[in-house]
Lab assay of single mutants.
Amino acid sequence: TGIVNVSSSLNVRSSASTSSKVIGSLSGNTKVTIVGEEGAFYKIEYKGSHGYVAAEYI
């Protein structure tokens, strides 16, 4: 489990890349469940599926 540490919002992406499609966003202080790690990204549970967020902001 981690907490989103941004002042505005954090993009949730379809894969572990900044060039991948943005599938949603999370606001600051949102609690997320981390299920894996790929490079600089965490794989998280997101809306019944999975998404990827930049690990530096969690």
Rank of each mutant, 00 (worst) to 15 (best):
T1Y: 15
T1C: 15
T1K: 09
T1Q: 13
T1F: 15
G2V: 08
G2D: 04
G2H: 07
I3V: 12
I3A: 06
I3C: 14
I3M: 09
V4A: 05
V4G: 04
V4M: 04
N5P: 04
N5F: 08
N5I: 13
V6G: 10
V6K: 12
V6I: 13
V6M: 08
V6Q: 08
V6N: 08
S7E: 12
S7P: 10
S7Q: 12
S7T: 12
S7G: 11
S7C: 15
S7A: 12
S8W: 15
S8N: 10
S8A: 11
S9A: 11
S9M: 11
L10K: 02
L10Q: 04
L10Y: 03
L10C: 15
N11P: 15
N11Y: 13
N11Q: 14
V12A: 00
V12S: 00
V12Q: 00
V12T: 02
V12M: 01
V12E: 01
R13W: 15
R13S: 08
R13Q: 14
R13G: 05
R13E: 03
R13P: 02
R13I: 08
S14V: 13
S14Q: 14
S14N: 09
S14E: 15
S14C: 14
S15F: 07
S15K: 11
S15Q: 13
S15C: 13
S15H: 14
A16D: 02
A16R: 05
A16F: 04
A16W: 04
A16S: 07
A16G: 06
S17Q: 07
S17E: 08
S17P: 01
S17N: 11
S17D: 14
T18M: 14
T18C: 15
T18V: 12
T18I: 13
S19G: 10
S19W: 08
S19L: 10
S19A: 11
S20Q: 01
S20K: 01
S20G: 14
S20E: 03
K21V: 11
K21D: 12
K21T: 12
K21I: 11
K21P: 15
K21G: 08
V22F: 05
V22A: 06
V22C: 08
V22L: 07
V22H: 04
V22G: 03
V22D: 03
V22T: 06
V22M: 05
I23F: 03
I23G: 01
I23N: 00
I23C: 05
G24S: 02
G24F: 07
G24D: 02
G24P: 01
G24T: 02
G24V: 03
S25Q: 14
S25I: 15
S25V: 15
S25P: 04
S25C: 15
S25L: 13
S25A: 10
L26R: 00
L26N: 00
L26G: 00
L26V: 10
L26K: 00
L26T: 02
S27G: 10
S27I: 11
S27V: 12
S27N: 11
G28K: 14
G28A: 14
G28V: 11
G28Q: 12
G28M: 11
G28H: 14
G28R: 12
N29T: 07
N29I: 05
N29R: 09
T30P: 03
T30Y: 06
T30H: 07
K31R: 13
K31P: 09
K31I: 14
K31M: 13
V32G: 01
V32M: 03
V32K: 00
V32T: 01
V32E: 00
T33R: 09
T33V: 13
T33C: 14
T33Q: 09
I34P: 00
I34A: 00
I34D: 00
V35F: 06
V35N: 03
V35E: 04
G36H: 06
G36Y: 05
G36W: 05
G36Q: 06
G36L: 05
E37V: 15
E37M: 15
E37P: 05
E38G: 02
E38R: 05
E38M: 08
E38S: 08
E38F: 10
E38D: 09
E38A: 07
E38T: 07
E38C: 13
G39D: 07
G39M: 05
G39R: 05
G39S: 05
G39I: 04
G39W: 04
G39A: 06
A40Y: 08
A40I: 10
A40Q: 11
A40R: 10
F41E: 01
F41S: 03
F41Y: 09
F41G: 00
F41M: 05
Y42V: 06
Y42P: 00
Y42W: 06
Y42H: 02
Y42S: 02
Y42N: 01
Y42C: 04
K43W: 04
K43Y: 05
K43D: 01
K43G: 01
K43P: 01
K43F: 04
I44Q: 01
I44A: 00
E45F: 08
E45L: 13
E45Q: 09
E45Y: 08
E45A: 09
Y46V: 02
Y46Q: 01
Y46C: 03
Y46D: 00
Y46H: 04
K47N: 14
K47F: 09
K47L: 12
G48A: 06
G48Q: 07
G48P: 03
S49R: 11
S49V: 11
S49M: 12
S49C: 09
H50T: 10
H50Q: 06
H50Y: 15
H50D: 05
G51S: 02
G51L: 02
G51C: 03
G51E: 02
Y52R: 00
Y52M: 02
Y52P: 00
Y52I: 00
Y52G: 00
V53S: 01
V53A: 04
V53P: 00
A54W: 14
A54C: 15
A55R: 15
A55F: 07
A55W: 06
A55D: 02
A55T: 10
E56G: 07
E56N: 08
E56C: 10
E56Q: 13
E56L: 10
E56H: 10
E56P: 05
E56M: 12
E56R: 12
Y57M: 08
Y57Q: 07
Y57H: 11
Y57D: 08
Y57A: 09
Y57K: 07
I58G: 01
I58D: 01
I58H: 02
I58L: 06
I58W: 04
I58Q: 02
